[in-house]
Design a protein around this nucleic acid. Structure first.
Length: 641
RNA sequence: GGCCCCGUAGCCCAGCCAGGAUAGGGCGCCGGCCUCCUAAGCCGGUGGCCGGGGGUUCAAAUCCCCCCGGGGCCGCCA
């Protein structure tokens, strides 16, 4: 690959290696070559003939090439397996565990990856799990590649949701009483229940009032309100079953409150101003939720360098600073009496759109910064947060893993930053968007308390893995079986969630994920376990580069070797384009090539000592590459399964 | 209504940005392979107007235009 790109670059006068590298392809099977390159676009006209001859001549001189020819505009190259093998093993031995990463990075980038940032009022659900899987995988990819990565979780504790939660919790007593009531519950699950109950009860109280008022008039509106009430009541009835004591106490307390809705709105403002006791109550509530969420994130293998509280941006004055700047800005405007930025004009500049990656013809409505009651909006605080992320890290790239549905607000944040003079920040921000995760036949709603949590999904996957092990008669001790099942479950979920283009909606069919159907984490883990088994039985240190390569580096063995040699390029592309699914695709191919070879060419039964040593080294190389790519994807390599 | 994303076998997906060889995988279905390194594996078979139409090009799944279908966004929510 390096050779080919080098020769092409010289002969074609193309300086951008990346441009050439991306075009190097796998030739169709009927050709039988090892590498292919579409030359036709570079060699139009007669002048091309000399260039082609030059390329072919130079390639043929290399010890790495046995054959090179031009067919139908394609440059096809056949590699010399022994020489190729020598080079791959050399790279493996010099790079060691870092094989796959570049030996010298052009420039080590500082990258912020903000991900997950789930609302601290309920457990993490499967949609968020996609965010976590993508974000953590991107971070691992970049970090393995040699970049400096800073992983951040944005705690969205300002606004209506935490106010509802805190208001409800307050009605139940203080933190010690919360602990008592949540005995036997995972903290975030209990929090999620209290949040859903509080939200619906407050809603119900408001509804009752409106029904009272509309009673005399009757008619369509009245009937609509009553049917809304019926839906709420039946939803509440389902929630009561989960925890009758909490339900009864909350219902009593909230219904006694003359105007719960107004109380909650008041709490939003009080918290934003940082006033006690609301401040303390909200913080304790959020801490409790985070405690539970952290357990789940640990389970998924996602760790963070920083937990940034939204409220700190408000209390610390950064939000006020943004507002002050906005008032000085030519884009400042009043939108129906609320302070706003009119970014439409700025967004018309094609140069700005390009630099800030504003999609297509996306129209930019005015961005409200502050409600008429003086409280700020999420997006306003997000502008401040972006500034903070940059000020603390001076990152070259700030990746925000945020759902697709926030495309507009994300674009508004970048434009606002640009308009307010934070141009560097704006240009370095990347909205890494991903589509929703659907569940067949279920609509999730955290307000109704109807969500499918990551914990449930992992438990269920764990059970499935245990069942499979049982069916296969694995006689490992119980605790070992459970440990393996857990690693399979986490791997299966993470692998699945990053396996398809983030732009595509994903349907998480529990049956399908449990099926472990093909290019799945367990398939890869199984390959790793197989390779480990061979090396274990061989009882020797793997990856000693063989003193000589035996003849017969061909067929399945050759395919496997070629794939192992491709790891640096595959990983390089995945990192450059931030596409973890490339790695998933690669792992699937690699594991498949190994299984094919495994089935046709025994390692341990090989009688020729040189050949045996070589095969063992190949297994060792495979195992290292598998392990490396798996760890990047957050899939635990398993010695046995 | 405006805008964004998606549409490739019965089902799921890669390829599209940066056009090139006979459009690749997987699941499912049918049929094979365990006296031998883990059968969560391997082999064979089955299945495609690449949503539809037009255009650009020597060449279109890929680029442009129109249309259809699915999802999302357009809030003093997040």
């Amino acid at each position: 690959m390096d050779l080919l790109v080098g020769v092409l670059s010289r002969r074609l006068g193309v300086v951008d290696r990346w441009e050439l590298e991306r075009l190097v392809a796998e030739p169709p099977r009927h050709v039988g070559a090892d590498l292919a390159f579409p030359l036709m676009r570079f060699t139009r006209g007669k002048a091309g003939r000399d260039v082609v001859e030059g390329i072919l001549g130079e390639l043929r001189e290399s010890p790495l090439v046995v054959r090179a020819e031009l067919v139908g505009g394609f440059l096809n190259v056949w590699l010399e397996p022994r020489e190729y093998s020598r080079r791959v093993f050399k790279a493996l031995s010099t790079m060691g565990e870092r094989y796959g990463a570049p030996s010298s990075l052009g420039r080590r980038l500082r990258v912020v990856v903000e991900h997950t940032s789930a609302n601290p009022v309920h457990p993490i659900h499967v949609g968020t799990a996609r965010n976590t899987s993508l974000g953590d995988t991107l971070a691992r990819m970049l970090s393995f590649y040699g970049h400096e990565v800073n992983r951040r979780f944005y705690v969205d504790d300002v606004g209506a949701q935490t106010a509802y939660l805190a208001y409800g919790l307050h009605k139940l007593g203080g933190p010690s009483e919360w602990r008592r009531l949540s005995q036997g519950w995972k903290p975030d699950h209990w929090i999620g229940l209290v949040y859903a109950l509080t939200y619906q009860l407050v809603e119900l109280a408001g509804l009752k009032k409106r029904i009272e008022e509309a009673r005399d008039e009757g008619g369509e509106e009245y009937r609509e309100l009553v049917s809304q009430q019926d839906r709420l009541v039946s939803s509440l009835a389902r929630l009561r079953e989960r925890h009758p004591e909490v339900f009864d106490r909350l219902t009593k307390a909230i219904m006694e409150d003359p105007d719960p809705q107004a109380r909650v709105y008041e709490w939003i403002r009080l918290y934003e101003r940082g006033e006690e006791p609301v401040r303390g109550i909200v913080r304790s509530a959020v801490e409790m939720a985070l405690e539970g969420m952290r357990q789940t994130l640990d389970r998924m293998g996602a760790v963070f360098d920083a937990w940034d509280f939204e409220s700190d941006l408000v209390w610390g004055g950064l939000v006020a600073e943004i507002l002050a700047r906005a008032r000085q800005s030519p884009y400042y405007t009043l939108h129906k009496e609320a302070e706003a930025l009119d970014l439409g004009r700025l967004a018309e500049d094609p140069e700005v759109r390009r630099r800030l990656r504003i999609p297509g013809a996306l129209e930019i409505p005015p961005l409200i910064l502050r409600r008429s009651d003086g409280s700020t909006l999420y997006t306003t605080r997000d502008i401040a947060y972006s500034v903070k992320k940059y000020q603390e890290t001076h990152a070259d790239l700030i990746v925000n893993v945020v759902g697709k549905e926030q495309t507009l607000p994300q674009a508004q944040v970048r434009l606002a930053l640009y308009a307010l003079g934070y141009r560097e920040v704006a240009e370095r921000m990347l909205h890494y968007s991903y589509e929703m995760v659907n569940l067949p036949g279920r609509r999730m709603s955290s307000r109704r308390g109807e969500i499918v949590t990551v914990d449930e999904v992992l438990d269920s996957l764990c059970e499935g893995a245990l069942g499979e092990m049982q069916a296969r008669g694995m006689d490992y001790p119980q605790d070992m079986r459970e440990e393996i099942a857990e690693k399979i479950a986490v791997g299966a979920l993470r692998y699945f969630l990053v396996s398809v283009d983030a732009d595509k909606p994903l349907t998480l069919d529990m049956g399908e994920v449990l099926d472990f159907n093909r290019n799945t984490a367990p398939y890869i883990q199984y390959s790793y376990a197989r390779a480990s088994g061979i090396l274990r039985r061989a009882g020797q240190a793997p990856l000693e580069p063989p003193s000589h390569e035996p003849a017969g580096t061909q067929g399945e063995r050759w395919n496997l070797l070629k794939l192992i040699g491709q790891y640096p390029y595959r990983l390089g592309r995945a990192v450059a384009e931030l596409r973890p699914e490339y790695l998933v695709d690669y792992l699937g191919r690699l594991a498949n090539a190994f299984h094919k070879w495994y089935d046709t060419d025994p390692v341990l039964a090989e009688e020729d000592p040189g050949a045996r040593a070589y095969k063992l080294a190949l297994v060792g190389a495979l195992r290292r590459v598998l392990g490396s790519a798996m760890r990047i994807l957050g899939v635990e390599p398993l010695e046995r399964m």
